[in-house]
Design a protein around this nucleic acid. Structure first.
Lengths: 350, 350
DNA sequence: CTGAAAGCGCTTACAG
DNA sequence: CTGAAAGCGCTTACAG
């Protein structure tokens, strides 16, 4: 049983190799890798030199087997915007790889009962769930997840659940700032296109618009608010209605970029120049805002970063002792910025 | 050393548990899981029952540690289209999780020298590389990857390298079929917007357009071909030029959807109805084609499926004995379909 | 067709 | 601050 053939495949150096070269035990190498403090600087440096010399890279499989640190996070999505999903994925994927968590991406079928979905997640040994919009606002899904005892992170919700982590920007404040920016440019008649009624951020954005108008002492004309649902098509209808008002608004602030792009299209169709005859602003800083021409001034949400933080929070919760879990729920507000581009300017002189 | 405390964390059932319940050895359980043939049906069923009873799910970490089947695949991307990336990711992620490969997503900085990039990949223990457009067409990158001995899969290239796997649709044929479709509708003056000159699919799509015209015996008017580079902006310029021709084309076929969307915008700006006054077709079936209104008739590429297949091919190559690698390179052509939507119709009567 | 032994590369839980 | 031992859950390479 001794002269057994070595297993196939040249593998890289291991902790044992590093330990030998550095003249320490594998345990000490492990400590250095995991940046524990209780290692003498001299020892640490020897180990680091050996790691660099050998080009050692830890074996993730072995690490998670030994550490018992398995962590599978499901990303449940039903967002029609591929751009949003892709940016979200980049953030959560990077973080997952960093902390050695496994990310499971699951497209949510709206027809599947939530009980079945949650059952499937447990079957896949999912430890936690990432919930980007619009699922983050689904009460039935949240209830099912809470009942299953799964840690959850809601991203971009206007109404964080008590049991879940939440990562949001201040949508109300962002809309307020964008509207105030337009007012500062000289606009007095600013049209607003709302988001979908079933997403909590829609109301927040609308509230920011209302407050900015009030702060500036501008009259509130209900004809200047048109209902949208975040789709381009709804933006077309809403912008058409807004531009039919007399007198015409000199600016339109849409609750997302797809609808802002639609407003630009309607303006062009009516031979209005953007921004000379009409300023248009959007929300989200999605691909659409940079694709069309002119490029749209919009509110930038750090989607990738929010995904990254949400993933880190979930992994922390999973690896925590279960007792303290409820106490550690975090509602984090991240900073937004306004991206000034080419679609806004002063109102026409008329 | 005996009464040692068990490790923390309730773990699920293991092969040992299944083996005990089924009255077989762990080895046999492993065989059943890996669907080896040399297990008696009766034994297999006992094991399967035990698996179902216990709700056993294999531990991936242990499996890859023991099996030595580590496989890290890098997805190198520089594609400006988030929609493309996101769909690509869905496919490769699903396959990677299925075959227990690790996917590393790496944004390519065009300023970084390729030698450094390839060096970094080796440092991360990357075993293979997925190359979607436009990187799939970069000769310097391909050369560096080949020199490093890394298996590569090119996706959607018009010119597959001899050493690499390639997954493509027949772009020439797809463009031919779309053009022929327009001709079948009655169009005789069909404008064409080309793709970027440095991507190999651009020439293929152009060739398909040319061939369809020739097949139908239509004259080849060089003014009906406008140079684009796949951006919306270039589509705006190209469509403006095409619509200035006298007589005006009754249809425009753009080499991607962003440019087709731009053509729709230019038409609307000129008060032309789409499709009553002008038919517009695109290529790729990207999010843009379904976002704008009217929705665009386009060529559907199964991007997720191509990514899935490419990932599977690479994993196969990595796990192969190195000797046979070169012999196993595969150039696969997958089927495309035409998605008929609302942007095309017969030419106007006059 | 089935099984006993060894080992994958790392970390936990102790002990000193 | 450092190390020797055991074990994570599975598969490989044999042997029967």
């Amino acid at each position: 049983m001794r002269g057994r053939r070595p297993r196939l495949g040249a593998r890289g150096p291991t902790v044992a190799d590093v330990a030998r070269l550095a003249g320490v035990s594998p345990m000490t190498v492990s400590r250095v890798i995991n940046t524990e403090t209780s290692v003498l600087p001299a020892t640490r440096d020897k180990v680091r030199t050996a790691i660099a010399t050998l080009g050692y890279v830890p074996n993730l499989a072995a690490r998670s087997l030994a550490g018992g640190q398995q962590c599978r996070i499901a990303l449940l999505h039903a967002n029609p915007s591929a751009a949003y999903l892709s940016e979200f994925l980049m953030g959560s994927l990077a973080q997952a790889s960093l902390i050695d968590a496994q990310l499971i991406v699951e497209q949510c079928d709206p027809l599947e009962p939530y009980q079945a979905l949650v059952g499937r997640l447990s079957g896949h040994r999912v430890d936690a769930v990432l919930l980007p919009p619009p699922l983050c606002d689904d009460p039935a899904l949240l209830a099912a997840l809470e009942a299953a005892g799964l840690p959850v992170a809601q991203i971009a919700t206007g109404r964080p659940a008590a049991f879940a982590h939440a990562l949001t920007i201040d949508d109300e404040e962002a809309a307020h700032r964008m509207t105030t920016h337009l007012i500062g440019r000289g606009h007095r008649r600013i049209g607003f296109i709302t988001g979908a009624a079933n997403q909590t951020v829609s109301a927040a954005r609308r509230a920011g618009y209302d407050r900015a108008l009030a702060d500036a002492g501008l009259p509130h004309d209900p004809r200047l608010v048109a209902q949208g649902d975040f789709t381009y098509r709804s933006g077309l209808l809403a912008a058409t209605a807004l531009l039919a008002c007399v007198p015409r608004p000199t600016a339109i602030f849409a609750s997302n970029d797809d609808m802002a792009a639609a407003a630009v299209a309607v303006a062009h169709r009516g031979h209005l120049d953007v921004p000379a005859d009409l300023s248009v602003c959007g929300f989200d800083d999605s691909a659409m805002s940079r694709t069309i021409w002119p490029e749209i001034t919009t509110v930038h949400q750090p989607i990738a970063d929010m995904a990254r933080q949400a993933t880190a929070l979930l992994a922390g919760t999973v690896r925590e002792r279960s007792a303290a879990r409820e106490a550690s729920v975090r509602h984090v507000r991240v900073a937004f910025t306004i991206r000034h581009r080419a679609s806004d300017g002063p109102p026409p002189l008329d």
